[in-house]
């Protein structure tokens, strides 16, 4: 495998994720509409929405500072970076050693902090409310997320996502009961971090319930488009982290061109199934009260800890 091929793979993957991310969002929306007996919008609707937003005039509050203007770009950059770290199509990409799973969690935290700051920038009561709730969910989800990732790290003896995936995918088949707990915990974190039911509802603007939407209330046009797009990439990145950790089979090595079609096909199948599962969860469950979120996420944390302890016990 040559260096050029690996770099080509890196660029290919990054561009692929950015382009394909809204498709996943569209697919989840479509599945949810079917499950709820509504006639489904086109799977391409997120692209149309982005195009529409990019054509509009931006309206910005008088007292918004430079931070408010910059945040959508920073968010997009963070998510793009995350898309480059996660082994979506291939392992061993040249950029992956620059940031491991802890740094990945750090990237998401960076994005969260900036979006919360931007929400408080215009000085409306909704912005502050959204920022406060988002940070609440963030500090509950982050330890659970790290514990989940640590379980995988203990199993593979590394915090590099690419090494973890190699260990889990390419070595002899072994059952890790710890991973089952970790997978459940990860799913709960994924729902919370991506503003999904039962923690948040992306389809509502009801002030009592909204979290993420309250934060971006002041954004419009291109800024809003970038934020929506970044959110789509975030969902895509989380789904692919889950796939990489718990269902890694079929992934290609960097520069391994013949394996690429299979890797893309496997990824699409897994993402389609994952998206449908997400829609199913969003249909089956109701949104929790905000102050039940700590219970939800602390059970995610406990599951992750259980997973880690199970790993220690079964290994001994």
């Amino acid at each position: 495998m040559s260096q050029q091929a690996a770099i080509a793979f890196q660029i290919l993957q990054s561009v692929f994720v950015v382009i394909a991310a809204p498709l996943l969002t569209g697919w989840v929306n479509q599945c949810r509409a079917w499950l709820q007996n509504r006639s489904a919008p086109s799977i391409l609707l997120p692209y149309y929405t982005l195009a529409k937003l990019f054509h509009k005039d931006a309206v910005i509050a008088h007292n918004a500072s430079r931070l408010f203007h910059l945040t959508p770009y920073i968010l997009f950059g963070c998510m793009w970076l995350a898309a480059g770290i996660v082994p979506v199509l291939a392992t061993g990409l040249p950029f992956t050693p620059a940031a491991d799973i802890i740094a990945l969690v750090g990237v998401f935290a960076l994005a969260r902090v900036f979006s919360a700051l931007a929400a408080m920038d215009t000085g409306t009561s909704f912005g502050g409310l959204g920022a406060r709730r988002e940070m609440l969910i963030g500090f509950l989800a982050e330890p659970a997320m790290l514990m989940t990732l640590f379980t995988a790290a203990f199993i593979s003896g590394s915090t590099q996502l690419t090494t973890i995936v190699d260990t889990l995918a390419h070595r002899e088949f072994a059952i890790h009961p710890g991973l089952a707990f970790a997978a459940a915990a990860f799913l709960m974190v994924l729902l919370a971090e991506n503003a999904r039911i039962p923690i948040d509802n992306p389809a509502t603007h009801l002030e009592l319930t909204m979290v993420h939407e309250a934060m971006i209330l002041e954004y419009s046009a291109r800024h809003l488009a970038l934020i929506e797009w970044a959110m789509a990439i975030k969902l895509f990145a989380y789904m692919t982290i889950g796939i990489a950790l718990f269902l890694p089979w079929g992934i290609a090595g960097a520069g391994d061109w013949p394996a690429l079609p299979l890797a893309i096909a496997a990824l699409l199948v897994k993402l389609a199934a994952g998206g449908a599962g997400l829609a199913l969860i969003e249909t089956l469950f109701a949104k929790l009260r905000l102050f039940l979120a700590p219970e939800f996420l602390s059970s995610a944390f406990l599951l992750a800890v259980l997973g880690m302890l199970t790993h220690f016990l079964t290994r001994a």
Binding site: H55, D57, V59, I60, A61, H62, T124, F126, E218, R222
Partner: peptide
């Protein structure tokens, strides 16, 4: 992007 920006008061809901 055309880059047009309008400044307004924050939305008062």
């Amino acid at each position: 992007y055309h880059g047009r920006i309008r400044h307004a008061d924050p939305w008062d809901c």
